[in-house]
């Protein structure tokens, strides 16, 4: 069975790699298989990890508890299960997405969209503000505090000053409502130079990672797959 799996994985790997030559039926087969299986898999995951535990189970338990409550046989457990009835609101909002299926009621879809965008923006914006502004500013200033304390080597001092200059110039590059001329233009050019140096380093670093992935895959084909033949 393991050998069968190795063969499937190897043949599909070769099908995908065949794209390097040109689009061909083997690549198309692997692509459609990959897309189809991934969609099927995600539907199963959504049902088992989303719909059933978050919507179906709490709601059905709440309905059973409601029946028990109506019959006058309430226990502390039934009272707790009744809280599942509140799930009706998010489920109802979610169901509005299906309004799209009816052209006349399609406008209803705007409500869940507005709630989702508003809710997610509300969560994202404070986190971005904290992580991308406050923490970054703090990280930039911390070395200067150490510099004053005299606990930094010359290399670190040069590095901190360099980063400070780079940050300020890069920030100036991202001013949009100011014409980039004169000193602003010069500073923004220094800023974009800093960005490009950073991107170059990131490019090299990531390419090395990708080459490692290629080596790993080639190793799989040579050792695991060809190993089953020879």
């Amino acid at each position: 069975m393991e050998i069968f799996g190795i063969w499937i994985a190897s043949l599909l790997t070769l099908c995908i790699y065949s794209f390097l030559y040109r689009d061909n039926p083997f690549y198309r087969f692997a692509e459609h298989l990959f897309v189809g299986i991934s969609v099927g898999y995600s539907i199963v995951i959504t049902i088992h990890q989303g719909f059933i535990p978050l919507a179906w189970n709490p709601l059905s338990e709440a309905m059973v508890a409601l029946g028990t409550q109506i019959r006058g046989e309430a226990t502390p457990e039934t009272s707790e299960a009744l809280s599942g009835l509140f799930k009706i609101f998010p489920i109802g909002i979610g169901l509005l997405f299906f309004a799209r299926l009816s052209p006349r009621q399609a406008w209803l879809i705007r409500y869940p969209i507005a709630i989702l965008i508003g809710f997610n923006s509300g969560i994202a914006i404070p986190n971005v503000l904290r992580a991308a502004i406050f923490e970054q500013t703090h990280g930039t200033l911390t070395p200067f505090a150490q510099m004053h304390a005299g606990s930094m080597s010359l290399d670190d001092i040069i590095g901190a000053v360099f980063i400070g200059i780079g940050l300020i110039c890069t920030l100036i590059y991202f001013f949009f409502s100011v014409e980039h001329q004169g000193p602003v233009g010069w500073l923004s050019k220094i800023g974009i130079a800093f960005l490009m140096v950073g991107f170059g380093a990131a490019f090299g670093n990531t390419v090395m990672g990708r080459v490692a992935l290629l080596i790993h895959r080639t190793g799989f084909l040579i050792n695991d797959w060809l190993g089953t033949i020879f």
Binding site: T137, H138, A145, M147, H148, G164
Partner: peptide, 28 residues
């Protein structure tokens, strides 16, 4: 504002005044 905070923060930190860093630390 961020630009000003960084420039002012660098000057203050180099002078031994660390209230901007302490404030940012608290926000984190």
């Amino acid at each position: 504002v961020i630009f000003a905070a960084i420039v002012l923060g660098v000057i203050l930190e180099l002078s031994g005044v660390g209230w901007i860093t302490s404030f940012l630390q608290r926000v984190r």
